[in-house]
Every structure is written in structure tokens, then in C-alpha cells.
């Protein structure tokens, strides 16, 4: 390592001080329990005898060789590949709309944000009611001449319906962060562009979106982690069905840990889930490569 300048030394010492509370907190509150959970992924506990034994990679081998787990992986990837871009696009579109100076814009923003604050059990109550065969959504469909849809009760639509619920809770929340990013773009840049005669679309693609790269990277990554870890609607509404169509990885973890009681397999799944997320997030960072301005 090359010798550091005095200023870098000062910075390094200061950085240790500034980072200490956060890093210590994360180690104590997340890493330590995660390590014990990780260790569990190499164990098997017999429900017949109550004996726990070390089994090495057997839990991983079981998962990777199981057709059901492959289906879970496929469902999870498909779900996230579709849902996360939709959330980013919709929250950005809403942000573009609501970062303008409009009458009562604060009210509109707040109303759009609220779903993020609704307790999970109530979100499930709302949507199960709206999506039941004679519910709100089908009433709206009937009003515009569309046929009745089965939503959560059909293996073809259940996953999309769960996605709709999650998107409802997420887009207003992420919109706030994009609005914050939009507020950070200096007006002068737009004024210059207007003088150059740039149209709305040109300003959006040449100025706004490139300058939004950092907040959007945040929204994409944090939103992706959020969607990968979401399981409450599945647990409450579909339990992975119909016919396994909504069996997302995190729900499968929950089911294996809390219902089946196979903690070793559940923790092995958590490890695989984290690897999968890390890969997806690494790709996202690559795509939205960021540098200091």
C-alpha cells in the first residue's frame, strides 16, 4: 500500500469514529444473530428423537436437488424481474408528476404515500376484500365491460395479484426518494436546456434521468431487497397456492422454519436467498454505475 498523506490519515481516523456506532450496531444486531442462523444451516434436528446433528452441506444438497425448490427459485426470480422494474418506473413517473409545483401537491404526495403505513394484516384484509369474486375490482371491471377475474383464486393470476398488492404499498414510498432526488437537480440546468430549445422528452432523457441515477440506484436496490423479503401477503392470503404459484422464496423459508420445523433447510434457504439477492444487486450496481460527480 502506498504511504498515505496526512490528510488521508486524518480522514481514515475520523472515518473509524464516524462509522463505529453504525458498524458496531449492525454487528451486534444483525451479524451476530445471522451467524448463529447460518451455523444452523449445517445442522439437522430430528423431530423423532430431538437430536441435533451436524450434517455439513446436506441441507443445501437437498434443496438444490429438489424440483420444488427449483420451482420456488423460478417463481421468485420471475416475480422480482417483473415487479421491481415496474415499481421503479411507476414511482419515478409519479415522482416526475409530483415534483412539480402544483396546487396541493403535498396533499397528493401524502395520499399516495399512505399505503406504505398501513399495517400488513389490514393490507391483506383490504385486498382480499377488493379481489374477492364479488369485490371492488370485479365491480370496476364489470362497469367497463370486462369479464369477472378470479385473481387470488387462480394459479394464473395469484402471483400478479400479490405483485399488485406489494406495488400498491411500495410505489408511494419509493416515490418520495425519487422526488427528493429530483429536488436536488439544479434548476439552472433546465433553464440552460430550455434556452437550447430542448423538448420535454429530450430534457427527461438527457438531463433528468442521468442526474437521477443515484437516487434511482437506491430505490432499485432497496426496493429489490424489499420485494425479495416480502412474504406477509403470501402467508396471509395464498399460503403459496393455488398450486404453488405464489410460493416465493421468503415464504418458503417462513414455511420451512415455522410450519414444517425444518430449521436447517430454512436457514440454508436464507443463505441461498441472500446470495441470489447479492448477485441481483451487484448487477444493478453495475448497470447504474456511479461515480462521484
Amino acid at each position: 500500500m502506498p504511504t498515505m498523506s496526512p490528510r488521508r490519515w486524518r480522514d481514515a481516523r475520523l472515518a473509524v469514529l464516524l462509522l463505529a456506532p453504525a458498524v458496531l450496531g449492525m454487528v451486534a444486531m444483525r451479524v451476530v444473530p445471522a451467524v448463529s442462523a447460518f451455523a444452523e444451516s449445517f445442522n439437522h434436528l430430528s423431530l423423532r428423537t430431538g437430536v441435533k446433528e451436524f450434517v455439513g452441506f446436506e441441507n443445501y444438497a437437498y434443496l438444490l436437488g429438489s424440483g420444488e425448490f427449483h420451482a420456488v427459485l423460478g417463481t421468485t426470480l420471475l416475480f422480482n424481474l417483473v415487479l421491481n422494474p415496474v415499481i421503479v418506473v411507476l414511482s419515478t413517473a409519479l415522482a416526475l408528476l409530483l415534483a412539480q409545483r402544483l396546487p396541493a401537491v403535498g396533499l397528493w404526495r401524502s395520499l399516495i404515500f399512505v399505503p406504505a403505513a398501513v399495517p400488513g394484516s389490514v393490507t391483506a384484509l383490504i385486498w382480499s376484500t377488493a379481489m374477492q369474486p364479488d369485490g371492488l375490482l370485479n365491480a370496476l371491471f364489470a362497469a367497463i365491460g370486462l369479464p369477472k377475474q378470479p385473481f387470488l383464486t387462480s394459479s394464473g393470476q395469484a402471483l400478479g395479484s400479490i405483485g399488485l398488492m406489494l406495488a400498491w404499498g411500495a410505489i408511494g414510498y419509493w416515490m418520495l426518494f425519487v422526488v427528493a432526488g429530483l429536488k436536488d437537480i439544479p434548476q439552472a440546468v433546465y433553464e440552460a436546456a430550455l434556452i437550447d430549445g430542448a423538448g420535454w422528452w429530450r430534457r427527461l432523457t438527457a438531463i433528468t434521468l442521468p442526474l437521477l441515477r443515484r437516487p434511482m440506484a437506491f430505490v432499485l436496490v432497496a426496493g429489490t431487497v424489499g420485494s425479495f423479503l416480502a412474504f406477509a401477503p403470501v402467508q396471509i392470503l395464498t399460503k403459496g397456492g393455488p398450486d404453488g404459484s405464489t410460493n416465493l422464496l421468503m415464504y418458503d423459508v417462513y414455511a420451512n422454519a415455522y410450519q414444517v420445523g425444518d430449521l436447517g433447510v430454512a436457514q440454508a434457504e436464507v443463505v441461498l436467498l441472500m446470495i441470489l439477492m447479492a448477485v441481483v444487486v451487484a448487477i444493478q450496481f453495475r448497470v447504474l454505475r456511479e461515480e462521484r460527480s
Binding site: 451476530v32 448463529s36 434436528l45 423431530l47 441435533k52 394484516s121 422454519a257 410450519q259 420445523g261 430449521l263
Partner: peptide, 20 residues
């Protein structure tokens, strides 16, 4: 909600055991 202990599938788990 109503009857959670009958409607929800039961729980049998072994929680992560730390080294206490």
C-alpha cells in the same frame, strides 16, 4: 385474527440456537 391458533398452520420450529 379470529382463531389464529386453529386456522394458521402450526409452528414447529427450532429456533436458531446461539451458543449460550
Amino acid at each position: 385474527m379470529k382463531l389464529p391458533w386453529l386456522t394458521l398452520p402450526a409452528v414447529l420450529v427450532l429456533a436458531g440456537c446461539q451458543s449460550a
